[in-house]
């Protein structure tokens, strides 16, 4: 019986989804994987991947996908944007933002799960902004302040440089999640959960 319960909580299909999304976040950070304005502004889309993971996988699976990615990065694979990898990323000042990805993906997922069977663009956007920006900054700014010894307020001001870019990414993530969920209803966390509950897993 115990085994049965465990399986319900984490079926194999979800294992594959988590692995593929962790890989997707990594690929979105590869150089040249996508440039918004020709080649002039190479922005990395990894935070977009984190928001998408939340919006599509739901709370736990999204958090797990980010954890898996970070474990592989710590193990030395160069999966962060710009080919960064290794323990150094956790020692550096941006470590808090990376840890914030875990909670950020989870909160995004939690909010989208509450938006029901067909989350609207606005609902997705709120989830992405709160989880993908608010929560990530909440973790990132204090850690950066602690590592660099710069005051919390000043660090927060410096971080505002990234706000416009992240806001654009939240809008994009919501558009992409909305498009994906229209094309593939099982990409809605609530729908996916219902399907699992109905025993749709094989």
């Amino acid at each position: 019986m115990m085994d049965e319960g465990k399986r319900r909580r984490f079926p194999t299909g979800d294992l594959a989804r988590v692995a593929v999304f962790a890989a997707l976040i990594a690929v979105l950070g590869l150089p040249g994987s996508f440039n918004v304005l020709g080649n002039a502004v190479p922005i990395t889309l990894q935070t977009l991947g984190v928001m998408l993971a939340g919006a599509i996988l739901g709370t736990w699976r999204a958090a797990l996908a980010v954890v898996v990615l970070l474990v592989l990065v710590i193990a030395g694979l160069p999966l962060l944007s710009g080919g960064r990898g290794g323990l150094g990323v956790l020692a550096g000042p941006s470590a808090g933002f990376l840890l914030g990805w875990i909670a950020g993906a989870a909160v995004t997922g939690w909010l989208v799960e509450r938006a029901g069977r067909s989350p609207s663009f606005v609902q997705l956007l709120v989830a992405c902004v709160v989880g993908g920006i608010g929560v990530v900054y909440l973790f990132g700014i204090p850690v950066q302040a602690a590592v660099t010894g710069v005051s919390l307020g000043n660090t927060a001001w410096l971080t505002m440089i990234f706000l416009p870019g992240d806001a654009v990414k939240a809008v994009l993530a919501s558009l992409v999640a909305r498009g994906t969920q229209r094309a593939y209803p099982d990409a809605v966390p609530a729908v996916h959960r219902e399907r699992l509950r109905a025993g749709g897993e094989h």
């Binding site: 294992l15 997707l24 996508f34 994009l172 498009g179 994906t180 094309a183 593939y184 094989h202």
Partner: peptide, 30 residues
């Protein structure tokens, strides 16, 4: 267009993942 890139990418990623999941259960990973 970012949507023309990301939506098909994410949809095919999900299709790939779900096919992979079924293949894994078919091989008795459960």
């Amino acid at each position: 267009s970012l949507r023309a890139f990301a939506v098909p990418l994410v949809v095919s990623a999900l299709r790939h993942a779900d096919a992979l999941g079924e293949a894994l259960s078919a091989r008795g990973v459960d």
